[in-house]
C-alpha cells in the first residue's frame, strides 16, 4: 500500500516547483495524489512477465550537427534582449 499524501508534502513539492497553492488546493491535491498513487498499487497484483532486454550503451559519435539559429532558439521566448532570453531577477 502506498503512503497517504498529506497537504504539507504537497505544499513542499509545490514550493520546489515554484507553484503557489492556497490551503484549499493543497488539501484537494493531497487527496488526488493519494488516489493516483493508489491506482499504482494495482500494479503490484500484475504477475511477473518476460520483458525485453534493457538497452545499454546507446551513444553517438562526437560529430557536430547544425543546431538552431539564434532567431529560432529565441522564437518561443516571451521576452528577449540582445540575443539573450530575458527573465526576472533571480536571487
Amino acid at each position: 500500500m502506498s503512503e497517504p499524501v498529506d497537504p504539507e508534502e504537497v505544499r513542499h513539492v509545490a514550493d520546489l516547483a515554484r507553484v503557489a497553492l492556497n490551503d484549499e488546493e493543497a488539501t484537494r491535491f493531497a487527496e488526488q495524489f493519494g488516489d493516483i498513487l493508489a491506482y499504482f498499487d494495482a500494479l503490484d497484483e500484475v504477475p511477473a512477465v518476460e520483458r525485453d532486454a534493457d538497452l545499454t550503451n546507446v551513444m553517438r559519435a562526437d560529430d557536430t550537427r547544425e543546431g538552431l539559429s539564434q532567431e529560432e532558439a529565441l522564437r518561443n521566448a516571451p521576452e528577449t534582449v540582445d540575443g539573450y532570453f530575458k527573465g526576472p531577477r533571480v536571487s
Binding site: D62, G67, L68, Y84
Partner: peptide
Amino acid sequence: ATKLFCGCSTDTADSEPNTHTCPTCL
C-alpha cells in the same frame, strides 16, 4: 567537439549568445 547529449559544437568562445543550441540542450 560536441556537447554531452547533443551534437552542438562546444567551440563557443567569442560567439553570440544562444547560437550553439538545439532542441535537446534547450
